[in-house]
């Protein structure tokens, strides 16, 4: 691996959007047109910033050079970028939980993990083929700070043990092996 500026890294951008139709789409356009690869969008509906705007968290991949262009383009389009950079969330990590996820309050499970760590859930996919009473599975992607992935895994394990859920962990903290 080299430290060349051509290397694609992942970034998290926090945006404030006005509550108007099309605002999200307008915000994503500068990312795509400046060579960013969108990984996930976390739209915090119902949660308003002090200015009454809607906070949106966007994970994307880009080279450092392109990332600068993206932030400039966003600002140029009048979009409020509250935080941008790799320093906040630089690692993505995926786990799968299985078991009685619904009966054990999935939203409480996620809150406990997020409260105990600095991780943010950026993607959640649930599969409950037999209905909510039976065992189901959830795939959860967390964005974590650099080198904090192991701490998140440990917390996921603890909470899962508490609720008798099964954790399928990624191989290696980043899951890239």
């Amino acid at each position: 691996m080299s430290d060349s500026t051509d290397e694609v890294r992942s970034y998290t951008v926090r945006l404030e959007l006005v509550d108007e139709p099309g605002a999200l789409l307008d915000a994503l356009e500068p990312i795509a047109s400046n060579g960013g690869n969108l990984l996930s969008i976390f739209h915090e509906r119902g949660n308003l910033t002090p200015r009454g705007h809607i906070p949106v968290e966007v994970d994307l991949e880009a080279t450092p050079e392109r990332f600068e262009g993206i932030v400039e383009a966003l600002r140029g389009a009048g979009i409020n970028v509250i935080q941008a950079g790799a320093e906040r969330y630089s690692e993505a990590m995926t786990v799968v939980l299985t078991g009685h996820l619904i009966n054990t309050d999935l939203s409480d499970t996620l809150s406990r993990i997020q409260e105990a760590t600095n991780a943010t859930v950026t993607d959640l996919s649930l599969s409950a083929p037999e209905g909510t009473e039976d065992a189901s599975s959830a795939r959860i992607r967390f964005a974590t700070e650099q080198d904090a992935a192991q701490g998140v895994i440990d917390t996921v394990r603890e909470v899962a043990a508490d609720k008798e859920l099964r954790v399928i962990e990624p191989l290696g903290p980043g899951g890239d092996l």
């Binding site: 995926t94 799968v96 299985t98 996919s125 599969s127 409950a128 083929p129 065992a135 189901s136 599975s137 959830a138 795939r139 992607r141 099964r166 399928i168 191989l171 899951g175």
Partner: peptide
């Protein structure tokens, strides 16, 4: 033994799969 089929499905949607790994 207690791996749900749905866990593998979810993993596949994300370009991943599940394997029994010895480490």
């Amino acid at each position: 033994q207690d791996i749900e089929g749905s866990a593998l499905e979810l993993a596949a949607e994300d370009g991943r799969t599940v394997r029994l790994i010895a480490e």
